[in-house]
Design a binder for these strands. Structure first.
Lengths: 336, 336
DNA sequence: CTGAAAGCGCTAACAA
DNA sequence: TTGTTAGCGCTTTCAG
């Protein structure tokens, strides 16, 4: 610690306000400019952001509240967001809300609000609208990412999971499948329930019977995916295809597939939501729904930046991005 | 923004300083305590950390400068560190120094120093010691993670990559391999050069010939791994085994392996440094060197916390953690 | 135990 | 254009 604007002023022989102005891009006489620059270099000065933040109530920090970074989906998002924010002069306070009870989310929100962030990006499962609104009402812009409830009066950016899911299921149907299981996530997640919804709509639209035993809950976890495959394989009437609704469950599922000696796609066709390395590494390559993560990050950052600049003209903004369906080799065509 | 300690004071009818003392765990008359608590709740007050930081010059924030989070190694580390720091009351400012020229590292370091962090965790490639020391000399504790140069007078925690590498190579030798290629990372990384060093030591200790064409540079990148396999497969004398020195290169390598129809381990044996999902998903499962990431996070956080509490008794601390060797099915035993 | 007041480093309004 | 100065919200003497 130590060298302050005062020291620079003394060194450069100008008033502190001149330095402040220079620092903030104001006009300064040529000679002074040089003196200031020299002094700054010599003393190795860098402004204290706490003090600056206290004055301006801008901290150039944004809070990112999201699930554990320990999966490619989140970590890629984190990465993309960091990059974009940094290029706009913001840094990220990253908080892991994985064990996302309502209390945790509230605690984390209070924390970032107290920490004086200029904006917040949050992916919060469950019914935590009030915590989110509170920050917003404190005047701090909040953009909700992925987990948006339709009735929230807030900015949010999400992926059309229901649509992606619909597409995947329709593909399976068109390939001739009728007995299709779905490995679900926890219902409290909008993303999970949307993916199930897409499944159900296809079942409905194509007039197929709803078979309860084909809905299995994998909790968006590795072990869950593993167990689900075990479960459906033990069914008296096995499905010919399975739709796995996220990446980590898919990895667990693959482990079970290997263990049980299930051949893909001969014994079981697979379509998965999310598309990372695994889909390409595994043989056969997996047919998958790919989420537009870069676009997601783009939109989230764009809106947050706009709000932080005080522009609320189009509030609340609701964006639903379309995922892409990628056909590979894990689905068998069943001849009619 | 808005509600400050002043408002609480008015509401509770006590002096500002009394509230401050209460907030910081001081003794306060029972009645006042209750009044303060009520006021805080009513006004929904939370202290402004910028102001507090300005006063105390403690921010309870630590800077984490590391490579892109877009790979399981870094993202897992990030996750573990966040968890530990949060439990001690610290939050993380995450900065991605991937394009880690010296200038970038310097820029990021200046930033976190200016941002007023209480401590810094950094993984910086290349010769950036002076930037690192500068922060340290400003009185901000710095712990170096993974990329430690032996001559640095600073705390660092790293994994014994040379040892892990040695073990992997020795295993290959004991399985009867003599022609072993190595897919390397950029030399500017200590981790990369250590892994190569382990390779060379085994070659030396077992009196094998050094074959330059078996050293291929994959730059720690996916495409690099892919190209390396292509390259060694085009060699007049193909190796019987390959040691791949990190995870992303291994994924790229696997893609090439599939593309070329190389059978593992019949045509080529594989050992890889780093052990994540892929090693288990791929068939056959990959024999691998697993880095102790949790322990790494543990030690880094422990030391940083200690330094932030002013305890420099054992400075500089140098810790080298041992990786584990995991035998799976990707190495063929060649009979003598 | 409580309150008044100084001051952390900086910005911005105002005066010069 | 530059300098003087008040004050952002908080902690921390120090006197009561």
């Amino acid at each position: 610690m130590g060298v302050t604007i005062k020291d620079v002023a003394k060194e450069a022989n100008v008033a502190i306000s001149t330095i402040s102005k220079y620092l903030n891009g104001g006009k300064v006489r040529r000679k002074n400019k040089e003196a200031i620059e020299a002094a700054i270099r010599k003393l190795n000065y860098s402004p204290n952001t706490a003090a600056r933040g206290l004055r301006t109530s801008r901290t150039y920090r944004v809070g990112l509240l999201t699930g554990t970074g320990d999966n490619p989906h989140t970590s890629r998002l984190l990465d993309e967001i960091e990059r974009r924010m940094w290029s706009q002069g913001y840094s990220l306070i990253y908080l892991n809300t994985e064990c996302g009870t309502k209390e945790t989310v509230r605690e984390y929100m209070d924390f970032v609000v107290g920490a004086g962030v200029d904006g917040i990006i949050v992916t919060a499962s469950g019914n935590s609208e009030d915590c989110l609104r509170r920050a917003y009402e404190c005047g701090i812009p909040v953009v909700i990412m992925e987990e948006c409830y339709t009735d929230m009066e807030m900015d949010c950016v999400q992926v059309d999971c229901a649509g992606g899911s619909y597409q995947a299921m329709e593909y399976l149907i068109n390939a001739g499948h009728r007995d299709i299981a779905v490995v679900c996530g926890p219902e409290k997640y909008v993303t999970a329930s949307e993916r199930l919804r897409g499944y159900l709509r296809v079942i409905e639209d194509y007039g197929l019977p709803v078979r309860e035993e084909y809905f299995v809950d994998g909790s968006f976890k590795y072990d869950g995916g593993y167990e689900c495959i075990k479960k459906i394989w033990a069914l008296p009437k096995r499905p010919t295809a399975v739709f796995i609704t996220n990446y980590v469950m898919c990895m667990g599922a693959m482990e079970a597939v290997y263990e049980l000696g299930i051949r893909i796609p001969e014994d079981l066709s697979v379509v998965t939501f999310d598309d990372f390395e695994l889909s390409l590494m595994v043989r056969p390559k997996l047919t998958a729904v790919k989420q537009p993560l870069k676009e997601l990050a783009d939109e989230v950052c764009r809106i947050l930046l706009q709000r932080m600049n005080g522009d609320y003209t189009d509030f609340p903004r609701k964006i639903r991005l379309k995922p892409t369906f990628i056909e590979r080799d894990s689905v068998r065509k069943i001849l009619p």
